[in-house]
Design a protein around this nucleic acid. Structure first.
Lengths: 226, 226
DNA sequence: ACGGCGGTGACAAAGCGGTGACATTGCACG
DNA sequence: CGTGCAATGTCACCGCTTTGTCACCGCCGT
């Protein structure tokens, strides 16, 4: 899981990076607005940590640039008591904020919470209703009945659907999540992916209809009570 | 957009509810753990605001009960300086927290941010009376009875009618809103659009007469009390 | 009677999603 | 190194839905 950490204080970057790396994250650092924008373009991080005070501009500029072509989770790092800045950041599309100074433990908990909410959490298991997704074994557990082996693409598809179980997920978001923002797939392959997954779900139980089509929008995964 | 606000202080609930309602949210209140769990089960809110200190238990108990069968966004309301509580809440599956006291403006910004990052886009739903328009799933919810799948054009039509529920809306405004100013549609297609929507509404209940014709002016959507 | 307006039905074009067939890639195994 | 299989991408076709267009009907005021 790759994070982009943007802060002008190199010492703070170093200590924060260390804490995040201990927690298993890969951290890319940037110390100015142009650096941050460039790093975002080349590295495609899964989450961005953004200080507001930066040489060459503000964190707002970076946030705006990122939001222009990506829905990646953004967490602002602010100093305490600047409510105006905070409101502005959230209205610009930031997903969360953290007031400095913060403890590494808090930071890691918040980063994890944000990743989980975005449906991007890499390791471990994701559960919704009677369905549980196991990243290590690459399989889907259905209630207590059985497990279903799935492929990597099917996993990523289910990851996002499960993270938003019961809600319609737009095809664009699915494409971005499964194949990455670098246009690997189009609607054609998504059709096929869903089709093949439905076949599997049909064989493993009468579950093909769990993935519902929302015409002109995308798909929705329906779960039952656990 | 429906929120569940859980706090034992009735006065704070009242003032907070008012602020949220001003921002366009529908707020359900609860003052204790059993009340909160019951309200969650019957109301199915889109987001939960949870105080920690509650009669009959703690906000953690409510959070655990909710997470047992739902991934609805949960925001904890804490008192300042209880980092242990905060970390525990996030590990229990809460998505965010807010320290009391907070300004209504901050609360609204944070709620919006949380909804956005949950994929529920605060602009995603519009309601008027017993009708609710869901932009994400592209459907119309009628009271508690059922949902009706609608098309993109029907959605845009209802969007404007619902925003002016009970008032006549001129055909020119409808044309401009549904098809844009680029002369894509004329009165003929609007006739057809309304006709087809009335058929759908008629099948889904006896709702065809909800769209009333105002001769020489346009149409009006009638709603009943929610 | 006439003309404007709105309702209704029928039809065609375009788009979207489902499905099957086949090609390509990558990887484990002999 | 070749072989076979699973995973993935690509193509073609089918059917349904959505949307635009036309024609015709009835209503109503002059």
């Amino acid at each position: 899981m790759k994070l982009l950490l943007v802060d002008d204080d190199a010492d703070l970057r170093a200590v924060t990076s260390f804490a995040l790396q201990q927690a298993g994250f890969l951290v890319i650092g940037a110390g100015s607005v142009p650096e941050a924008v460039a790093a975002f373009g080349t590295e495609h991080p899964d989450l961005v940590l953004l200080d507001i005070n930066l040489p060459g501009g503000t964190g707002f500029d970076v946030c705006r640039a990122i939001r222009a072509d990506s829905r990646v989770p953004v967490m602002m790092l602010t100093v305490r008591g600047e409510e105006e800045d905070l409101v502005r950041a959230l209205e610009l599309g930031a997903d969360d904020y953290l007031t400095k100074p913060f403890s590494p433990r808090t930071l890691i908990a918040r980063v994890r919470a944000l990743l989980r909410r975005a449906g991007l959490e890499s390791g471990g298991r994701t559960r919704a209703g009677d369905l549980e997704l196991d990243a290590d074994a690459l399989c889907l557990r259905i209630g207590a009945d059985g497990t279903l082996r799935i492929t990597r693409l099917e996993f990523r598809l289910l990851q996002l659907l499960l993270a938003h179980a019961g809600q319609a997920v737009a095809t664009d978001r699915l494409l971005a999540h499964v194949w990455g923002h670098k246009g690997g797939g189009d609607r054609q392959v998504l059709k096929q992916l869903v089709h093949r997954l439905r076949l599997k779900l049909g064989e493993a139980g009468d579950l093909a209809n769990r993935i519902e089509t929302i015409p002109a929008v995308g798909y929705r995964l329906n779960v039952t009570a656990p």
